[in-house]
Amino acid sequence: MEPAKATEEEVLARAEELIKEMQKGNEQTAAQLLDYVHTAKENLLFQEVGKMTRQLHDALESFRRDSRIDSLAEHEIPDARQRLSYVIEMTQKSADRTLSAVEETMPMAEKISEQAGNLGQTWKKFRNRELSVEQFRELSADIETFLTDIERDSSIMKNNLNDVLMAQDFQDLTGQIIKRVITLVEEVEGNLVELIRLTGDRFAKPVEDNEADTAPEGPHVPGVGVKDVVANQDDVDDLLSSLGF
């Protein structure tokens, strides 16, 4: 039997034999046996180290495979970035479309209101018999123009309102995209937790956020992060008035 392939039992048997041979005084046989035991032991140690290395390697490999970290880093996170950019683009487009419709409609509404006011006053004069025939002719021509204008403008206003309505379709689409990104963020979070677990919590404690107290943080999201935030405009007004505003 080759000492490199010896099992634990075989090594033990040779070791017992070695003691017997030494007691008998057979130095040459004893030396051979000692050599055998020594080589075999060394090999067992190497085998053990090898096994552990393999296990570690397998653990890391399976972690990589199970967690899809490669795929997350290479594809899904850049994808998510693109998706979120698309959300910005869509909401921007929708806001622009809505604003354009409103900007076109507002002056029309103002014009109708103003013209109706003017006509109403002249009509009142007519009812009070304060208009001359010439003035009445003017009034009836104005009313005719007004009615034609209203017919045209209200049709444009209706189209614009329809446009505002249709511009809200982003909500459904962006909602779906954002939901997917939230799922991805959850998955990444799970993987990071697993990674920390595998590395045996050897990470340093989280560093406190040292940013200046008044550095911009963007919109406050209810239930998230920062303390000491005002809840609404009334809070702002109270705070300012306490400062002498």
Partner: peptide
């Protein structure tokens, strides 16, 4: 959208007229 009390105080101290 900045709504931290410290920020509002800083703006007030810097001389803002309304927030």
């Amino acid at each position: 959208a900045e709504s931290k009390r410290d920020q509002i105080v800083e703006a007030a101290q810097a001389g803002v007229n309304g927030y």
